[in-house]
Simulated assay, not measured.
Amino acid sequence: MIGRIGGEEFLLVFPAGEKQAVKASLESFIQACGKLPSKLSQYDGLSVTFSIGLTNVDTRRELMASMTNADNLLYQAKAQGKRRVVDDETNQQ
């Protein structure tokens, strides 16, 4: 599922699965979207970037706490130069 939660922020919900596989898919998406400006050359100076905060939601944490965590990770991704996915494990390094 995907939904806009405000401004330029979107929430993507993936079914339960391997977080590293989701992260790899999101990184591929970021790379593919980075090529868009060359295909949209009529828009001078267009730049497309994505910064993503990735976290798991499980029965031990409330949804809002997980969204806050993902939002904090998103801002870390932006601070690290954008065009990246930052998750709980990345954040611990």
Rank of each mutant, 00 (worst) to 15 (best):
Ile2Leu: 15
Asn56Arg: 13
Gln93Ser: 14
Asn69Asp: 15
Lys35Cys: 08
Asp71Thr: 06
Phe14Ser: 05
Glu18Gln: 07
Gln93Met: 14
Ile52Met: 06
Ser38Trp: 04
Pro15Thr: 06
Leu40Ile: 12
Leu73Trp: 07
Lys19Trp: 00
Gly17Cys: 04
Gly17Met: 02
Gln31Thr: 13
Ile52Asn: 05
Phe10Ile: 01
Glu62Arg: 10
Leu11Tyr: 02
Leu74Thr: 05
Lys23Phe: 06
Ser38Thr: 02
Ala79Arg: 12
Ser41Asp: 12
Gln80Glu: 12
Leu26Ala: 04
Glu18His: 12
Asp44Gln: 14
Gly81Cys: 10
Asp87Val: 00
Gly6Arg: 01
Ser47Val: 13
Phe50Asn: 09
Ile2Arg: 14
Ser28Gln: 14
Val22Phe: 01
Ile30Met: 08
Leu11Met: 11
Gln76Ala: 04
Gly81Ile: 06
Arg61Lys: 12
Glu89Ala: 13
Asp87Ile: 01
Lys35Met: 11
Ala16Lys: 14
Ser47Asp: 11
Ala16Gly: 09
Leu11Phe: 07
Ala79Ile: 07
Lys19Phe: 02
Asn56Tyr: 04
Tyr43Asp: 08
Leu46Glu: 10
Lys35Ala: 13
Leu36Pro: 04
Gly17His: 04
Gln93Val: 13
Val13Cys: 03
Leu46Gly: 06
Asp87Gly: 02
Asp44Thr: 12
Ile30Gly: 06
